[in-house]
Simulated scan of single mutants.
Amino acid sequence: MDMAAQHPTAALLLCEVVMEILSWVPAKPLTRFKLVCKSWNSIISHPHFVKLHLHRSPKNAILLFTRAQALTLGEEEKQSLVLSSVESFIQNPSSSLDAQENRHSLHVEDWVSGSCNGLVCVADILFHSNDDICDIWFRLWNPLTGFVSVNTPCLRANVHNSFGFGYDESSDSYKVVTVIPDSSGTVTAHVYSFRDGSWKTINSLPAFLFYAEDNNGHFIGGTLNWLGLRNPRGDDYDWADVTLDMLMIVSFDLKSDTHKQILLPKGIDEMPREEPILGVWGNRLYLLHDYNNTHFIAWQMKEFGDENSWTQLLKISFHHLGVETLFPEFIFENGNIFMLRGRHCFEEVFYDRRDNSVKRINNLANNSYFIAFDYVESLVQPC
């Protein structure tokens, strides 16, 4: 048998073996492995490999968007994005936030509207002299590879808007959604596909108002989800006037551009004293709120979209947490660790339900506040 005739098959087999091995390597080393040789660069850059690697990547990091306050008069406010593993952040939050090697600078006007598959969606917002109007541009950014997309066409909107960012697997497209309610109660969604490079308008959303403290849409299962108020009167509200029947979850499907409403857990029988929030970890949706200003409660939707799968995951007293009142912020480790913020100071409380332990950190953000996103390092660079 002619050995030369076997060379193409042998080369193909070797390529598949190399691809299989490299697909289990963390994303950061792979950016250096591309320099080893042309064949490795070709393998690592191939869209099939990028998707395979993403599928096999563990979600072992969080994305921290921080906006530091100016400490002295006249000092310019600074913003940055920090990457840290969950383990490192929980063990030493302050050091993780201060680590320069994982810090990326942002413009003062930038706002992180979401993270998905290693991509960060950044909104550049220009406010007009009329405080109710702003211009918004969006871009995608991969902090690991340095990839930055071109800006979207400008979207003019009122300032009472909310962003959401996610991935439509059916069209292999990353999309950003801007939801804009007006004073009459009408809600409009503007959807931009980075693959198609175009905006489209959806006018069929129900009248609802989202919370200022929780205005990013939460991506899960191909949908973006907001917690809000049904049929609000105008574009503002007083929480003291809100009733349980006004609370709703709006879920927007990125594939069909349609929406549905998801009911809150049936076990909620009393209005929280403070606004509840949604959270996502892995493929689970969470609802976090206080009870009678004495307990913190966490609900988990075990099967996304199935309202009967809401399960009360946690009920813990403020006394046990060592606080008088608090606000939920983020969830780690499949709903096992909760990060909560004290009300009157820069204090973060970490509660681990596996061993019932409590850890408190004062002045964590060094006179700044931050927002945490679930994040995974990847090689994704969309068209």
Results as ranks from 00 to 15, higher is better:
299 W>S: 06
31 T>F: 06
62 I>V: 15
343 R>D: 13
149 S>T: 11
332 F>C: 07
280 V>M: 06
187 V>C: 09
127 F>A: 09
193 S>R: 08
328 P>N: 14
84 S>R: 02
225 N>D: 07
173 S>C: 09
221 G>W: 02
126 L>I: 11
35 L>H: 13
38 K>D: 00
90 I>V: 14
185 G>T: 05
105 S>N: 09
207 A>S: 14
245 D>F: 09
194 F>Q: 01
309 S>G: 08
153 P>Q: 02
271 M>V: 02
296 F>W: 08
33 F>N: 07
187 V>D: 02
274 E>S: 11
156 R>H: 03
268 I>V: 15
327 F>T: 09
290 D>S: 10
87 E>Q: 14
30 L>H: 01
350 F>G: 03
42 S>G: 11
272 P>L: 08
346 F>H: 10
83 L>R: 10
260 K>N: 14
266 K>P: 00
193 S>D: 08
173 S>E: 15
18 V>H: 05
185 G>F: 07
373 F>A: 04
336 N>V: 08
152 T>N: 04
100 Q>R: 12
65 F>T: 04
141 W>F: 15
355 D>R: 08
187 V>T: 14
382 P>M: 07
183 S>H: 08
376 V>A: 14
251 S>R: 02
300 Q>R: 09
123 A>F: 01
178 T>L: 07
146 G>K: 06
292 N>K: 10
358 V>K: 05
69 Q>A: 11
317 S>V: 11
187 V>Q: 03
114 G>I: 04
300 Q>A: 13
366 N>K: 14
208 F>W: 00
46 H>G: 02
168 D>S: 10
212 A>R: 03
152 T>L: 05
146 G>P: 12
